[in-house]
């Protein structure tokens, strides 16, 4: 087991564990914190997969900006374990069962893929570098890039419409 494999397992366990933490934690603040841990673990995976730029973006955008926003909102609303609404046990159980079923079914469905032995390992390759990504983005993907500005515009307008006090 080489170092990358060890790292893979550590990061995987960390990601899954903290994701479970998000779901299970009673206190919303803990959930946010767990989520941040998940993001970090995923960023670690990115680095393992030679996606350095994405790893950074993930931390900056997700863990940094988005999660802070979440935290901010939670703090603003003063949410905590006491006021946290809880579903009935049965519904929760049903939810878990359903999630588990879905997992099992999807895994059962695709575990036998022909490409399953194909590896995705830390090795050479520099596509994850900002330069290469940038080149591709502004050559081949310039159209979606520009179009996503419309998305942002609309989100911006929307946030104003919804958020602004009348």
């Amino acid at each position: 087991m080489n170092i990358s494999q060890i790292l893979f397992w550590i990061l995987t366990v960390l990601a899954l564990g903290s994701a479970l933490g998000v779901v299970l934690s009673k206190n919303p603040v803990y959930s946010v914190l767990c989520l941040i841990v998940t993001f970090f673990a995923i960023s670690g995976h990115y680095i393992l997969l030679n996606a350095q730029f994405l790893a950074i973006v993930n931390i900056i955008v997700y863990a940094g900006a988005i999660m802070v926003l979440f935290l901010f909102v939670i703090m603003l609303m003063n949410l905590n374990a006491e006021v946290e609404p809880q579903k009935s046990k049965i519904l929760k159980f049903a939810g878990f069962i359903a999630g588990l079923c879905l997992f099992l079914v999807i895994v059962a469905a695709i575990k036998n893929a022909e490409a399953k032995t194909q590896a995705a390992q830390l090795a050479g390759g520099d596509i994850g570098l900002i330069k290469n990504l940038g080149t591709a983005l502004f050559n081949d993907y310039v159209l979606p890039f520009e179009i996503s500005s419309v998305l942002f515009l609309s989100a911006m307008v929307g946030a104003v419409v919804i958020g602004k006090k009348e």
């Binding site: 579903k87 519904l91 049903a94 939810g95 359903a98 079923c101 999807i106 469905a109």
Partner: peptide, 18 residues
Amino acid sequence: GSYVLFMIIGIVLFFVMQ
């Protein structure tokens, strides 16, 4: 929650079928 539950059941069923 129940809406999503039904959706999940639907997805599972579709997977099973397919």
